[in-house]
Each structure stands twice: as C-alpha cells, then as structure tokens.
Design a protein around this nucleic acid. Structure first.
Lengths: 206, 206
DNA sequence: CACGCTCCTTGACACTGTCAAGATAAAAGC
DNA sequence: GCTTTTATCTTGACAGTGTCAAGGAGCGTG
C-alpha cells in the first residue's frame, strides 16, 4: 500500500480511542464498532485487535478516558456554584446530571452498556477519582470528621437514579404522570436538615 | 416438512416471548437473539419477523411481560413486610432490589439495555402499573391526601440508583472503598422524619 | 546486508438482523 | 365437495459484526 500513511501508524491506540469516542458521540452506542473505529483511524479492520482485547477492551480504554470528562464536568459545575457546602454539593450533582445529558454517549458507556472490564486498573483509577469528587462534596455533611457512608451512598444513589431515569431531560416520559421536582429539592431532603459542620475555614471555591 | 409440528405453530408469538425470556435468564443479555429464540421455538430464523418489528419489537413485548414480574415482586415483598407505612414502603423497595438481583436479565431488559420501544401501549400500561405500586407505597408520607411528587421521585431515584449501582449485591466493587448501608437506612433519611399521616384506618396488609 | 521484532493487512469463519420470494396450511366462498 | 383467499412460515440471500490464523511491510540491531 503506497498511501500517505506509513505502515506503522505511530499512535494507533490513541487514535482508535479518539475515533471510538467520536463514533459514540455522533451516532450513539450502536454506532460504536471495532471496524468503524478502525476505518476512521485509517487502518484495516483487524488492526484494533493488536491494541485491545476485543471490543470490550477498546470500550474499557474509552471508558477510562470518559471518566476524566466526567470528573471535569463535576468539578466545573462545582466551581460555578455559589459558596457553602450545600451549594457545592448541589453543583457536583448538577455536573453529574449534566454529564448524563450532554455527554449521553459517554454516560451510556460508563454506566449503562456495562460492556466494560471493571477490573481494569486504569479504569478503576479513573473511576475512583471521579467518585472522590462526589465523596468530597459530601464530607461537610458528615457528623464526624470522617466520611459518612450513609450520606455518600444516599446522594450517589439518588443522583444516579435521577440521571438514569432521565428525569433531568425536559421530555422524559415520567413528566406525563408526575411533575418532576428539580434535583436540588431532593438533595435537601437528604442533607439539609442534617446540618453540616462549619465550612472549611479558609476555603478554595473550587 | 413432515415433522411433528404443524406448519402453523398456533401461538408462535407467545412461544417466542417465552423462549426469549428463557434465553435472557440463562445466558444474559448477549444470549438473546432473534435467531436463537426462533430456533428454541422450533421455527425458522425469519419467522419472528412476522410477529415483531425486529429484535426491538420482540424485546418490547418481552419487557411488557417482565414488568408484570416486577410488579409481582414488589407486591410480594410488601406482603411479607410488617405493618406500618414505612415497613410497607421498605418492603416495596426490597422487592425492587430483589427483582434487580434475582431477575438480573429482566431488570437489564427493562432499565439498562434500553432496546425497547417506550411508546408501545402494552409496555406503557405494564410500566405504569408497576410504577403505581411504588407510588401507592409513598402516598402515606405525603403531607396532603394527594401524592407528593418530591417524595415519590426521591424514593424512586434512590432505589433505582441503588439497584443500578449494584449496591445490593454482596460482591459489588464499591464495598472495597465504602461500607454500603442497607437500603432501609437510606430510605429513612427521606421519609422517616417526614411523619406520615395516620395509617389507613382499617387496612389490608397487602 | 541480513536478521528479528513489532505493527499492520489480508482473508476467512461463524454469527447477527433484515429483506424478498415462494411454499404450505388453514379458512372462507360458492 | 372444490376453489380461492389469506395468514403463516421457510428458504435463500445480503450486508454487517467480532474474531482468528497467516503473512507481509517497515524499523532497529547485529
């Protein structure tokens, strides 16, 4: 083959991840295919097999990268939130929901499709990091200086369920039978009357 | 063809749904295939196309049936719960979680895979019915005689997220970093200090 | 120059959903 | 009774998919 691309792509692994993420964003989960990613990266259909353990392996690598987007989204919304522990936690949750809405393809990859190897070390690290953003935001609401699993899990479950039920979408089917309260109202049911310890004395605003 | 089965199966549609549910339970979501369901029902690979609108159509029909299992599971756990509105709501939630655990394939079909036509009337009816079980259990915690969407959505989101994060599984990965409180404890954060109106005066126990 | 090693291609296989045509059996009309 | 019609299923094909085995192309090292 005497094309412009050399036989050795140079950085095919990264290119495939990039191509896969594009496919996912553009065409949804069903558009993500080993062969299509290969074609978009300009290589033959079997090339990905030398870099990933099948489709599942590629999705795992993509997920590790998507988790960084996820963390960024939560951090960004936290920064945009007002001062105060509750506002910051609400901001993190809004980031969680915004990721589910605006990066639906990636959210699907991380939490819905499940075609991902959860024991992959890179993935675990990225996911733990994202998880930590949420946990940190919950910390001020713990009665002690240690994290309170009950609060963490309550918030995590609720925001996750809210996102997966699609309740943050303007056209979700549930709106036909119930009117959906904004997530902040639900959040207050868990943490508002559980008054936080005083805010970190001289704080960063994120 | 001079086999024992007549040319007209008689009730192929139901047989295909049954076969599909079996495949889902036995081999997980990836084992569910139009061709395999057809083979198990003893018909040719293209027969399902005459009864369903593709794989999506068959999954939709299966989902409508699975929702009945789902409702039954919640009702059964509600019956097994003690008296009192909180115990009954907790029972319904336990049914929700039990369905996610014990009927993982069906739960996946309903809430995870998403390869289902949400506008199908039979599916909508079945899903509304299941939803109603949960909403009814929330009713005693409303401040008025009308349902309180905030409570309903809070409980629904939380139990849904708890189930989808797999937190009810004994070997879920999150146990490595947090110890997972039982769902009942989380539920109390939403409804316990929101004292219910008195229980229905002379009640059924479900 | 020759060797080895890594990266990628080619070609094949079994499997998937889906479509067009045709065969077959049951029902309906007379 | 027989014919016609209709619903039901089969056969065969097609474009995709993931995955494997075998081999070629290019780079570094002797």
């Amino acid at each position: 083959m005497a094309n412009d691309v050399p036989h050795h792509h140079g950085n095919l692994r990264e290119a495939l991840i990039e191509a896969g993420l594009q496919l996912l964003v553009e065409g949804g989960p069903s558009a993500l295919t080993l062969r299509r990613a290969a074609a978009r990266a300009g290589v033959s259909h079997a090339a990905p097999a030398h870099h990933f353990d099948g489709l599942r392996g590629m999705q795992t690598a993509m997920a590790a990268r998507a988790y960084q987007d996820f963390s960024d989204m939560m951090v960004r919304h936290r920064s945009a939130a007002g001062p105060g522990a509750l506002a910051r936690l609400a901001g993190v949750c809004q980031g969680y929901l915004a990721f589910a809405t605006e990066r639906a393809g990636l959210f699907h990859l991380l939490f819905v499709a499940g075609e991902v190897s959860r024991d992959d070390p890179a993935l675990q690290q990225a996911s733990t990091l994202a998880c930590q953003v949420l946990r940190d935001a919950c910390l001020p609401f713990s009665a002690t200086t240690l994290p309170d699993p009950q609060i963490e899990i309550a918030v995590w479950s609720m925001v996750h369920g809210y996102a997966l039920l699609g309740l943050n979408l303007p056209d979700c089917p549930e709106r036909a039978i119930v009117d959906i309260p904004p997530f902040d109202d639900l959040l207050r049911r868990i943490v508002a009357d559980n008054p936080s310890k005083p805010l970190a004395p001289a704080g960063d605003l994120g």
